[in-house]
Write a protein that binds this DNA or RNA. Structure first.
Length: 465
DNA sequence: GCATGATCATGC
DNA sequence: GCATGATCATGC
């Protein structure tokens, strides 16, 4: 029954289910499959091999779905096990390239995106390090029908957002972090892979629609496992994410830190008391950023305090990094770049008035590509070199160590500073520090400069002046 | 006043 | 015990 592209929905389902528990090598060992190319199974990735050896279709770059007339697109996608045992998607799911010159003419349901991807047969395989691709096993399958998907509303909103940027002549400003679930990821060898856009002379980076890594991770946890203890913020409401967030903000806007502490029965001198208040606003037990909706959209909540004079006193910290991991990465694929390119930050603004901080509202923001590829890159590369060369401590004065890490005054956007319990909270260095001989050093993290971040909050700073 | 090193309370 | 979000403390 080799019909290739002509398989119908039921046949696709049967074949997909038959692949579960098998690797490409297992599939090739089976007698049933007799494809001409069976003896040349070395080209392409796992996805192409599955298309070829499981379904008997040749890789193509057709604008149609893989199976016609069934109208089903086939996607083979990896997930992995994290150190803490949780599952996560290994990659974003890349869909079709965005044709800036034509896609804007369509409505969502008549778009090329919809035509190609409205029904996707997913095959998941478990990615494991140091294992031959042909030995990785397919473990789960799922037919993803967008029309029945609980996230369809958000996906359509995301599509509209991207299309609007094209219509505004701003295709060159699109960022994957712009949207919630459906993203526009860069596609091409480097920043010089550009194409024309209809409403501007500026060439725009080639991009494809994708389901963002964070969204795929939630699908993995939902359909493969590990999902039960994830808290939701949307409980017993028909509101969309945005509507719900707005209703919560409006409920608490204008209240002070002291009032909110009283209302939520929090008596704490913790430095992150405002973030505790924010979790309570959303009636979340743990952390707001760990809820299903925030994870799925890759939104990280942060609180920010604006002083009476409009200054933001403190920079914004990231989790501490591991020195040994930094030197094993390069800029193109490092965690920091990945996070900044794909993450949206939801700032909860507290502004100082008299002896209290008033909750003023939120601001959604992601770092512009331009800043990531210049200032952040310079900082990251210098951090890499500092660690790799063992040149961390510059000198010691009054018991305090002056370092060669990138400081605030040196970089417009970000810097490196300690981040731990105290100076004794150390972690292993890949290369001993030349000056002190230390083989461990106080944990550090990347910080976004307070003065850089200030520009984002002009509306809040001006408003009450 | 600002930049930098250091540190705190919490939750799991 | 540790990671995290965040603010404190001090010398120039």
């Amino acid at each position: 029954m080799k019909k290739g592209r002509l398989y119908n929905r039921q046949e696709i389902e049967i074949i997909s289910k038959s692949a579960i528990g098998k690797s490409i090598n297992d599939i090739l060992d089976e007698e049933v499959i007799t494809i001409e190319d069976k003896n040349n199974p070395n080209k392409g990735g796992l996805g192409q091999m599955v298309e070829q050896f499981l379904f008997g279709i040749q890789t193509n770059s057709d604008s149609e779905p893989d199976f016609m007339p069934a109208g089903i697109e086939l996607k083979v996608t990896p997930y992995k096990k994290l150190k803490d045992g949780k599952l996560s998607a290994k990659e974003r799911l890349v869909l079709n390239i965005i044709d800036y010159m034509s896609e804007y003419k369509n409505e969502f349901k008549s778009s090329h995106f919809w035509f190609k991807n409205n029904t996707i047969q997913l095959l998941w395989y478990l990615w494991e390090p140091n294992k031959d691709t042909k030995d990785l096993k397919i473990t789960h399958e799922k037919l993803l029908e967008l029309v029945k998907n609980e996230d369809l509303k958000q996906i359509e909103e995301d599509w509209e957002f991207i299309i609007n940027k094209i219509k505004e002549g701003k295709a060159h400003e699109i960022s994957e972090a712009d949207t919630m679930y459906l993203g526009a990821c860069s596609k091409g060898a480097n920043a010089s892979s550009v194409r024309e856009q209809p409403f501007s002379e500026i060439p725009a980076m080639q991009r494809a629609f994708c389901f963002k890594n964070s969204y795929m991770t939630q699908l993995v946890r939902k359909y493969i496992g590990d999902y039960s203890d994830v808290e939701k913020i949307l409980k017993g409401t028909t509101d969309s994410f945005n509507e719900f967030v707005n209703s919560v903000i409006n409920k608490y806007k204008g209240k002070s830190q002291k009032e909110l502490m009283k209302e939520f029965n929090i008596d704490s001198s913790a430095k992150n008391v405002n973030s505790m208040l924010v979790s309570r606003m959303f009636n979340v037990k743990s952390k707001l950023g760990e809820t299903e909706e925030f994870q799925k959209a890759n939104i990280i909540p942060k609180t920010i305090r604006i002083e009476e004079n409009g200054r933001i006193k403190e920079s914004i910290s990231f989790p501490a990094f591991k020195f040994t991991e930094i030197v094993n990465q390069d800029w193109e694929t490092c965690d920091l770049r990945e996070e900044l390119e794909t993450t949206k930050y939801m700032f909860f603004v507290f502004k100082k008035e008299k002896d209290d901080y008033i909750f003023k509202g939120i601001k959604l923001w992601n770092m512009p590509e331009m800043d990531i590829e210049t200032s952040v890159m310079e900082m990251w590369k210098k951090t890499y070199n500092t660690i790799k060369s063992g040149n961390i401590v510059r000198y010691i004065k009054d018991g305090k160590r002056k370092t060669n890490f990138v400081g605030m005054s040196e970089n417009e956007v970000c810097h490196v500073r300690p981040h731990g319990r105290d100076a004794k909270d150390t972690i292993k260095l890949p290369v001993a520090d030349k000056l002190t001989g230390a083989t461990e050093y106080t944990k550090q993290c990347f910080w976004i400069n307070n003065n850089y971040i200030k520009n984002i909050f002009q509306e809040y700073i001006k408003k009450s002046e």
